[in-house]
Lab assay of single mutants.
Amino acid sequence: MATDAALRRLLRLHRTEIAVAVDSAFPLLHALADHDVVPEDKFQETLHLKEKEGCPQAFHALLSWLLTQDSTAILDFWRVLFKDYNLERYGRLQPILDSFPKDVDLSQPRKGRKPPAVPKALVPPPRLPTKRKASEEARAAAPAALTPRGTASPGSQLKAKPPKKPESSAEQQRLPLGNGIQTMSASVQRAVAMSSGDVPGARGAVEGILIQQVFESGGSKKCIQVGGEFYTPSKFEDSGSGKNKARSSSGPKPLVRAKGAQGAAPGGGEARLGQQGSVPAPLALPSDPQLHQKNEDECAVCRDGGELICCDGCPRAFHLACLSPPLREIPSGTWRCSSCLQATVQEVQPRAEEPRPQEPPVETPLPPGLRSAGEEVRGPPGEPLAGMDTTLVYKHLPAPPSAAPLPGLDSSALHPLLCVGPEGQQNLAPGARCGVCGDGTDVLRCTHCAAAFHWRCHFPAGTSRPGTGLRCRSCSGDVTPAPVEGVLAPSPARLAPGPAKDDTASHEPALH
Results as ranks from 00 to 15, higher is better:
Q69L: 01
Q182T: 15
K165W: 11
A186T: 08
L210A: 05
K164F: 14
L97G: 01
G112T: 14
G197I: 11
S185W: 05
T232M: 13
R110C: 04
M194V: 14
A261E: 11
H60F: 11
P200G: 08
S99G: 04
V199S: 06
P115Q: 10
G54L: 01
P266K: 12
Q182P: 03
G267W: 15
G260M: 15
V214F: 10
G91H: 00
F82H: 02
R79M: 00
S187P: 05
D41N: 15
R247M: 14
A31G: 02
L63C: 01
A152N: 04
S248W: 10
S107D: 06
P200N: 12
G228N: 15
A141D: 13
K253M: 10
S168T: 11
P39E: 10
L175G: 05
L97M: 07
L158E: 10
D103N: 05
R149S: 13
I96W: 00
I96T: 00
G240W: 11
L273F: 09
V206P: 07
P200V: 07
E51P: 01
L7W: 02
L175C: 07
R9L: 03
K131H: 02
P254W: 11
G54F: 01
K114M: 09
I74P: 04
L49G: 01
A61P: 00
P166D: 10
P101V: 00
L158R: 03
R8D: 04
P109K: 02
S241A: 05
K83N: 02
S241L: 12
D34T: 00
R127I: 05
T130Y: 11
V22C: 01
A25Q: 02
I96N: 03
P154C: 06
L29S: 01
Q157N: 08
K161S: 04
G240V: 09
N179D: 04
L32F: 00
A138N: 04
Q69I: 00
C55Q: 00
E167C: 14
A152W: 15
D70E: 09
Q94A: 14
V80F: 05
L49Y: 03
K159G: 08
M194A: 06
T183F: 03
P233I: 02
C223H: 07
S196D: 09
F236P: 03
N86W: 00
C223D: 04
S234Q: 13
L177M: 15
E207T: 03
R272P: 08
F59L: 02
Y85W: 00
G54Q: 00
P129K: 11
T151H: 14
S241W: 08
S239Y: 14
H14S: 01
V256Q: 06
I74E: 00
P124C: 12
R89H: 10
V37F: 02
P115F: 15
L62W: 03
F26H: 00
A258C: 12
I224M: 11
S249P: 04
M184T: 06
E171P: 13
Q225H: 09
A58L: 02
S250A: 07
K245R: 04
A264T: 13
F230T: 07
A205H: 15
C55A: 00
T3E: 01
G269V: 11
E45C: 00
I18W: 01
L128S: 07
D4H: 00
F236S: 06
V199N: 08
E136Q: 15
T72Y: 03
R92H: 03
Q57H: 01
A134M: 00
M184W: 03
P154Y: 15
G208P: 03
H35I: 02
Y90Q: 00
Q172Y: 15
K131S: 02
A145Q: 12
V20R: 00
R132W: 05
F82P: 00
F77C: 02
A61I: 00
P27E: 01
T46L: 00
Q108F: 05
G267N: 08
H30P: 01
R92S: 03
L273D: 04
D34Q: 01
V192M: 11
E137S: 05
V226C: 03
A5T: 10
V199D: 08
G218I: 12
A265K: 06
S71L: 00
P95S: 06
Y90F: 01
F26L: 01
G197R: 10
I209W: 07
K42D: 00
K164E: 08
L87C: 02
G242I: 00
K221R: 09
S241P: 14
K243R: 11
P116M: 11
E136D: 05
G268V: 10
A141G: 13
A58P: 00
F215E: 05
G242Q: 10
G267C: 11
P154A: 06
A205L: 04
K52A: 10
R174Q: 03
R12H: 01
K259C: 14
E53C: 15
V37R: 02
G180P: 00
P126I: 02
D4Y: 05
G197A: 09
S249W: 15
F230G: 05
L81M: 01
T232N: 08
K42H: 02
E17K: 04
A264E: 08
L11F: 02
K52P: 01
A144E: 06
V188H: 06
A258H: 11
R132K: 02
L106G: 00
